[in-house]
Design a protein around this nucleic acid. Structure first.
Lengths: 235, 235
DNA sequence: ACCTGAACACCGTTCAAGT
DNA sequence: ACCTGAACACCGTTCAAGT
């Protein structure tokens, strides 16, 4: 998407981005950089403006408001999500790969997932991803309304788990509170919580996420999955 | 300004709550009221303080910071979540009832769900709810690590869907953007998104949520559910 | 058309000073 | 111990004025 707007970007790369002409894309990229570096608490319009050697007011030529910036940031970050090649593996493996890619795109910039939770993703990259997910689900026999709802459910889960991930990572105070609570947990009043306290805490990253995604897909496909054809799953 | 700390409390209950002695609980209740009335954007420490006829600084006797307030608000709101009576229905019906209760508790105060997404719930009410959910899942044959992960998955979904719900409700600008995108959607480039655009948008509230919860439970229980005993499900 | 400084109406948090 | 006003270092957004 117009990676290098014009020459200046190549010529005058000194200490600073050297007063490149402002553009929506540049603003968004800069904002994503700041987000990745300083997290969601370090991101502000004023800081983005400062990084671009200008004042916050200047950005309003390119943005209606902060929410629009968030939406654009989300979509630009989602450009990293790629649909896996269609000529290999089952639809299920490809679906999971795509969701994993979605997850890591959200995690790449610290706190992006939190923004994603309060933004309805509807940029070009979201559309592309939705389409790919729908194709994969169709291959799995999930169609129509169910397919639409399934895309929503799957992306919602991935976004939520990424947001939780980011919260725990950046916000160790909250995590410390949980640990204290678990340390003083009464085995009598809460026997099952007590027994499962390890598992409840364990981010354990991958394992829990993989299990959850599989569970959700199982649930979506339903108890009577369509007959598995011997052919490669349809494109 | 503690002019009327005690007797006056009974005597002078006029227009205002009449300068009740401050307390953590009172602060939390007031904050929840403001949240319910003005949404997440209308909530601030200063406003809570103003509603209590004091300055923001006064609250720091009872709160470490804003995050602690959020955590306390979440837990107080979750006190409305009740475990259904154990002597009726199947574990599955009761599980769904409890999750529905969880959902409506989060929706009752506009924007609470958004706070919940960036707070690890670990107050007494969360513990109680976890325990009940674990009991129900055990009745359904889901145990150990799987049960713990399942509780996490279910509550994460409910929280996320409530947050999405709140975002859409309060934030019609974003919703308008989606509608514009869908209106100009290319049936050629995104055939499946185009076909499912109604279903993707339809909040449709209950139906989609019910389907998703059922799908997740199905997925958790797994393809080989334990033999359904004829007895009432164990407590 | 684009950029800017200054202003407006807010934030959370701290702290010395009061009672 | 509790409360307070004032201050600090920030916010997003607007707007008249510049180029």
């Amino acid at each position: 998407m117009a990676i290098e707007t014009d020459r200046t970007k190549i010529i005058s790369r000194r200490s600073r981005p050297a007063k490149t002409a402002l553009s929506q894309e540049l603003i968004v990229s800069t904002a994503l950089e700041i987000l990745a570096r300083d997290g969601v608490d370090g991101l502000s319009l004023r800081r983005v403006a400062a990084a671009l050697d200008t004042g916050a007011a200047s950005l309003y030529v390119y943005l209606e408001n902060l929410d629009e910036l968030y939406a654009l940031m989300l979509d630009q970050a989602l450009s990293a999500v790629r649909a896996p090649k269609s000529d290999q593996s089952t639809w299920r493996v490809r679906l999971k790969a795509m969701l994993a890619s979605y997850f890591s795109a959200l995690c790449k910039h610290r706190g992006l997932a939190q923004l994603a939770m309060s933004t309805i993703p509807c940029g070009p990259n979201s559309l592309r991803i939705w389409e790919s997910l729908l194709v994969l689900l169709h291959a799995g026999g999930v169609v129509d309304t169910k397919a639409a709802w399934a895309v929503d459910l799957l992306t919602l889960y991935v976004t939520a788990i990424a947001a939780e991930h980011a919260t725990r990572a950046s916000h160790d105070q909250a995590l410390a509170r949980v640990k204290i609570v678990f340390a003083g947990l009464s085995r009598k009043t809460f026997p099952l919580v007590f027994a499962g306290r390890e598992a409840l805490l364990s981010g354990d990253g991958g394992a829990r996420r993989d299990w959850a995604i599989d569970a959700i897909i199982d649930g979506i496909v339903g108890p009577n999955p369509p007959p598995r054809s011997k052919r490669k799953a349809a494109r």
